[in-house]
Design a protein around this nucleic acid. Structure first.
Lengths: 252, 252
DNA sequence: GCTTTGTAGATTGTCAACAATCTGCAATAA
DNA sequence: TTATTGCAGATTGTTGACAATCTACAAAGC
């Protein structure tokens, strides 16, 4: 999925190239098909909210906009469908998937289990370097909480949990985790963090890192599980409020 | 994914049809595209071992064999790629994915976490009918263990765990779970159960049902987690043996 | 007025053809 | 002999065209 292996190819025989970016570009072109490019572009548009949930994805219009024909676009649709970002109906077309509150709650439940698994695994194998990175994240979030920087906290929060999963080295776990996070990103009905809850989360993050650092597999798993379920509860509460005609729009 | 909603459409206005299968077929044709059909056919072939891991999937040959053109076939390829059953290389083609032992171990680790989540959820909400079904499964596996019917036990085992996940009613959990099980099915290097271990597993299954029936969420989660990790350990042990030049082919 | 029917335009499903790339083998040269 | 080069066939990537289906609106019938 990631292309950080772009520089893996050593110059080998054809040592004529003093320009390093060449083979990087080459390696990219080599692996990347139009379908993949289109799929990534669409995913970005969807996750950025440019194509909001429920949107109809017109084939000819999108193909023209992206400068490709309908073939690669339709293949990309299949990829996005299987990854849960769009939904296709025969003879009706493709639509950006809409995640109901109950579905989001279900996904969050699974995510909690994955977080717990990641914590368990990482507590057993974390390196000092990895722990340093996590501590830096935790400190950054404490700082963001201190100055009430919601956006910074949110970004760090996402990255923190992603890195924990990534650091386990378990590709299957990372794959599933990211899939679910993307689907959850589709559900953003006031998904922003309540500012007053941020310091509490920052504390939990630090505690999580402590458990991992202590090699406490069960404790790390439990801490992450409770942390995720707390997030789920908050989402459910906000969701119920949001479905009522409550006029509280000034939060943004 | 499943089509058990085929009879959901009531006769409505056009009550001319005394033949019930008509609208069932109609509903199927309505929802099913060539791409979906091809995808299901390919998945079946792969999981049945008809297309073994590493196989090259030739587009024109497969298209001709299935009686479709390359377009729908290529779309189905994208679906299967995203579900982790095949791998595609640009300008080289599609291949049935090969799961290494280490990968299978990683997948099993995730599966253990999902099993635990399912057990936790089901223990909180299982109905008497569901518990009866699970008890029947457990009893059936005890019987199969008694007469050493490995095949029957294996089939029941798969169904048992699938049903537990399904019974939670969490669609996201079921989706992820089945995806991983399919990928694991790709890894069948003597993946058959050792006959002497079967009674032990049958006992564990009964214990799992007991925990669920007791509403012991933590206990059910822990039992299922340990159960899955036990399976993982056995697979690792067998895998290491299998990679050595041990001549023990008469087990089948 | 309301429902039904019919038609035109738009949209998706499928296909076949063309272009680009790869693979394997033979011919050539060191 | 061995390595390299250059083809020819096979295979995949992409495109545009045609067929099937759906949607929206208008006309006709009750």
């Amino acid at each position: 999925m990631t292309y950080n292996a772009a520089f893996d190819s050593r110059p080998t025989v054809m040592s004529e190239s003093a320009s390093t970016p060449v083979d990087s570009v080459l390696a990219l072109v080599q692996r990347t098909s139009l379908t993949r490019l289109v799929g990534e572009a669409l995913e970005k548009m969807i996750l950025a909210g440019e194509l909001p949930p429920g949107s109809k994805l017109n084939e000819v219009a999108l193909a023209e906009r992206l400068g490709v024909s309908r073939g690669p676009l339709r293949e990309a649709f299949r990829t996005l469908e299987e990854s849960g970002l769009i939904r296709q109906e025969k003879n009706r077309g493709a639509f950006v998937r809409e995640i109901e509150l109950s579905e989001a709650a279900d996904i969050y439940e699974v995510r909690a289990g994955l977080d717990a698994t990641a914590g368990r695994l990482l507590a057993e194998r974390a390196t000092p370097e990895q722990l340093a990175v996590l501590r830096e994240f935790a400190a950054g979030m404490q700082r963001a909480a201190g100055v009430n920087d919601v956006d910074a906290f949110h970004a760090l929060n996402l990255a923190f949990h992603d890195r924990i999963v990534e650091m386990t080295g378990n590709a299957a776990l990372l794959d599933v985790y990211r899939r679910l996070v993307k689907q959850l990103a589709l559900f953003r009905r006031r998904n922003l963090l309540a500012p007053q809850a941020i310091p509490h989360f920052a504390e939990e993050h630090s505690a999580i890192v402590d458990r991992i650092a202590a090699g406490d597999a069960a404790g790390a798993a439990e801490a992450l599980h409770a942390h995720a379920r707390g997030g789920r509860q908050r989402m459910l509460r906000d969701g119920e409020l949001g479905s009522l005609p409550v006029a509280d729009e000034k939060r943004a």
